[in-house]
Amino acid sequence: MNIKRLRIPIAVVAAMAVLTLLASSAAAMITVDGDPTDWSSVTPDIHCTDPDEGDVSIEGYDISSLWGVIEGNTLYVRIDVYGVAGDADDDGSNTDIGSSQYEKPGVGEGAPQCSYEQYYVDIDSDNDGDVDYVLNYCKGDSYLFQADGTTEIPGAVTAAAHRPTSGPGPYHTVELSVSIDGTNCDIDPDDYCLRGWADTQAGGAEDNTGKECYHHMLPPTAVLSGYGCVPGAITLSGCGSRANEPGATIVKYEWDFDNDGVYDEETSSCTTTPPWTEPGDYTVGLRVTDSNGLTGVDVDTIHVPPCPEVPAIGPIGLVALIGLLGIFGAGMIVRRR
């Protein structure tokens, strides 16, 4: 049996290794394990801080920040506290009952209907001002409820965790993730709000972050056109451009007459005159900026034709024109009589 040796060039192997690395990087996402370090690899939709350390007496339920981001069809939520998450008696441990009858392993594990220790998040799924879902973490488990707080959506929460002090830290973070299936749980990834809560019956401590919203603003639409001829007047127009956010307007037009990436002129009006003197096809770039600071770009080829020639009047034509004018003038005189 003849065996042929397969030779793979080193460059191909290197390319495959790079592609594998890129694929693994693209697939990387947040791991819900109570360790917040992997959030540094994402840009959160929502990140707010509560600078008022000590505004509740129990540091394990004194919120320092709230984070939220949607990746694919999953909403990830992170709540940071100033103390140890799940520590209801401020003894630095969240795994012993200690001096508090309310402290249970797993954040209120065994407490009926999450009435004792819990962390929860109000979710406004479409930024209309109404709470649509309530995400709870308590009793060593997690739940997603309808806005009434009692109708559970089974299987919506895919993970929830904080780190027990019996193992490696850090210990100040609670993480949760929710599956967005578009039916049982439907959250607009471009327009939603969160409000984080931490609540313990030990000392009646409760803290919240206030409502924080993420809205992906739509950039303006640039529309470029042109008309005219040479030699003569040529006009470039961006008057068909429009802002797409409510209340926004186009405030600036930038013109790149040769599409070299450098904008040659900036105007507040929607028209301008390019410096062209020869007929031809010109590729032009237009960038518009709206009152929110967002930009839109359009690139188009403008055809500039030569202007039609005006026929020259020779001697014979001039005599004929004078004759016609004379006849027209005589007719006017006759009419006046």
Score class of each variant (00 low, 15 high):
269 S>W: 00
335 R>S: 12
67 W>C: 02
203 G>T: 07
60 G>H: 11
303 H>N: 12
224 L>F: 02
330 A>D: 02
159 A>K: 11
58 I>N: 14
7 R>H: 10
316 I>D: 06
166 S>F: 02
246 P>M: 11
212 E>G: 01
194 L>H: 04
111 A>E: 14
59 E>H: 10
202 A>G: 07
316 I>W: 01
114 C>N: 11
272 T>I: 03
270 C>S: 08
19 L>S: 13
209 T>H: 08
259 N>W: 02
317 G>Q: 04
261 G>M: 05
38 D>R: 14
195 R>F: 00
221 T>A: 13
132 D>Y: 01
120 Y>N: 12
133 Y>N: 13
304 V>Q: 04
260 D>W: 00
117 E>C: 04
175 E>P: 04
38 D>P: 06
321 L>W: 00
301 T>H: 09
294 L>D: 07
99 S>V: 12
277 T>K: 13
143 Y>S: 15
134 V>L: 15
49 T>Q: 11
175 E>R: 09
278 E>K: 15
30 I>Y: 04
152 E>W: 01
304 V>L: 10
141 D>G: 11
42 V>Y: 02
278 E>H: 11
152 E>R: 15
257 F>E: 00
329 G>Y: 03
244 N>K: 07
276 W>T: 05
240 G>Y: 01
62 D>A: 14
287 R>E: 10
255 W>F: 03
159 A>M: 05
186 D>L: 04
61 Y>R: 12
292 N>S: 09
5 R>D: 08
93 S>G: 03
23 A>N: 14
337 R>E: 03
118 Q>S: 12
108 G>P: 04
5 R>I: 13
130 D>Q: 13
136 N>A: 11
299 V>Y: 03
203 G>W: 00
166 S>N: 13
31 T>D: 13
308 P>M: 06
320 A>Y: 00
319 V>Q: 05
31 T>I: 15
19 L>V: 15
11 A>Q: 12
90 D>P: 05
210 G>D: 05
252 K>N: 02
155 G>A: 09
14 A>S: 12
44 P>N: 07
85 A>I: 07
132 D>W: 01
91 D>R: 10
135 L>G: 03
325 L>Q: 05
114 C>H: 04
215 H>P: 02
198 A>W: 01
116 Y>N: 15
245 E>A: 14
125 S>N: 13
12 V>F: 09
288 V>C: 05
217 M>L: 13
117 E>S: 11
215 H>V: 13
165 T>H: 07
163 R>Y: 04
26 A>Q: 12
14 A>K: 11
286 L>A: 12
135 L>T: 01
261 G>N: 04
248 A>S: 08
112 P>F: 09
112 P>R: 10
275 P>T: 04
271 T>H: 04
264 D>G: 05
233 A>M: 14
222 A>R: 12
268 S>G: 08
154 P>T: 09
207 D>R: 11
156 A>P: 07
167 G>N: 08
120 Y>H: 14
157 V>R: 04
242 R>E: 14
125 S>P: 00
239 C>P: 08
143 Y>K: 13
173 T>C: 13
251 V>F: 00
90 D>S: 14
279 P>G: 11
